[in-house]
Design a protein around this nucleic acid. Sequence first.
RNA 1: GCCCGCGUAGCUCAGUGGAUAGAGCACUUGCCUCCGGAGCAAGGUGUCGCAGGUUCGAAUCCUGCCGCGGGUACCA
Length: 577
Amino acid sequence: MVFWHILHEAIIMIPTQLEDLIHQALKKAQKKGDLPKFPIPPITVTRPRRGQGDYSTALPLQIVKQVNNALKEQGGDKLAPIQIAEIVIKRLPPADFLDRAEAAKPGFINFHLSPAWLAQQAGVIAQQGPDYFKINLGQDKKVQVEFVSANPTGPLHFGGARNAAIGDVLARLLENSGYQVQREYYVNDRGAQMDTFARTLWRRYQQLFGLDVDIPPDGYPGAYMIGYAEKIREAHGDSLLHLPEEEAIPRFRDLGLQIVLDELKTDLALMDVHFDTWFSEQSLYDDGTFARVFAILSEQGDLYEKDGAVWFRASKYIGGDKDEVFVRSNGEPGYFASDITYHYHKFVVRGFDWVIDVWAVDHQNQAKRLPPALKAFGIDPNRLTIVLYDLVTLKRGGQEVKISKRSGDIITLREVLEEVGSDAARYFLLSHSNEARIDFDLDLAVAQSNENPVYYIQYAHARSASILRKAAEAGFAPNSAHLDLLTCPEELALLRKMLQLPEVVAFALEKLAPHHLPHYALDLAKTYTNFYGHCRVIATDPADKPLTEARLMLVQAAKLTLAYVLGLMGMTAPEKM
RNA sequence: GCCCGCGUAGCUCAGUGGAUAGAGCACUUGCCUCCGGAGCAAGGUGUCGCAGGUUCGAAUCCUGCCGCGGGUACCA
């Protein structure tokens, strides 16, 4: 199994393998005296923009100075970058996937994949299925992705959808790259907000029975609160009506919380987002974690009193520019205290190797102050990555629609998903870089037209399914025996594009930037459709059976590739549309 | 004020220090006896916000400026 992983990785991550080949070539050239001795720098192989081979490196340009400095010391003649390129190519060990390497001015090395090898990959992909694309970057490391984590005081509004999409796709990327992933929703179930929520709910409940009471002035005016109260009435009738306030508030807090959490679960399930854990903030105080954190900081002299509050000496740690209130003067721990305690729990109690928090950009200040604070516990701040994304503006026909209205009502995730569908919503939310603001136009997202690439991609998948069905009826089946017949440019272009998927996954993961997936998917669909347009798959002449079978294998491989990338984005891959 | 992000084609957006900066949409022109036309082929657009700097090489890195958004609480 271990061997298989190594072998497998070698097959798919071609740039990595090329980098290794170049490294070998450099060492050999040095040994043979073609090049002087100098420390070999990290080598990067990239995909050139166009027409310059499948992969390329600018290494000769990068090392020319070092090479010539070393030559000068030896009294040798200077080398031009392109000469270095030629030396490296001469010493390059052979590889089955490589057709040739060429030097290009002013000093690039361009690599061309072997067409015969490419054609065979159709069979390998079709046979291995999704495993073909799985890369083992994580080596079973335990990583937590914490996302959404909206306050449990009402339905999830549409702004949360972007968080859900980003977090979920990061989790999917990690899962498919050899990490052990836990998806967590942090439930802010304590503090003043929760109290206000409970008091509002209680009043709404009383109102249902005709009591003349108002919701608190700072309460939650949204109509959904009445819906929650009705649910409580259904379950408990009037039995809670005359509880004394000090009993009613905690009771309604618990009942309301349960209703909201159930609602969040069902709403998030509409976009196929599911959490492994719903972590209670209150539990940090109930199980003694907070007390422990307080004691540790206290012992270290990281806490001090000022103006009746307890402050955390953040300035003591590199990156912490000013001290933070830890326990407020009213005796309540502040948000920062909870946050530190929560992350202490993640790293020290639960032992995650890596934690990714997905936060909206309006939390940027916390994102800055939290990592340095981890050092107080000896936790390497690099084990925490906070992914910040910009906000979503909802529009309809170019006009902005407020997600949160003055009335307290909101545009919910559920409403939008019911209108545009999960696939279209996900695609659109994912297709922008995290740092970009999004204008989400409902009319545009819902339009089943050329303006919406979602359907184009899914259509490519459905069309593959259709071809395979139709071929089966005609008595054809995919077959690897004659893959060498796959030689036309459109076929090879499709194979090249499919081969790129693991590289895209690795890149998206490295940058924690899911938006590369939709762009790749569109590209793949386009390449596939181009193949479809140029290469008739199901032959009309029985003599063409071998080519038909080979192309069916390619179609099957393309279908798997499309399904895999759609799956990474949490989108469906329909057999029919 | 200070901190963070953004500014790329008419519009929406990609772009990893490399070669002639790319997609989709929109627009024009062809193509439906054809495996699914939600399609295909061809056509042309750019002071990469502005000005410097680093580099053999900058949309990309650095500095300053302009514009937009966000942050700068004993709120979360």
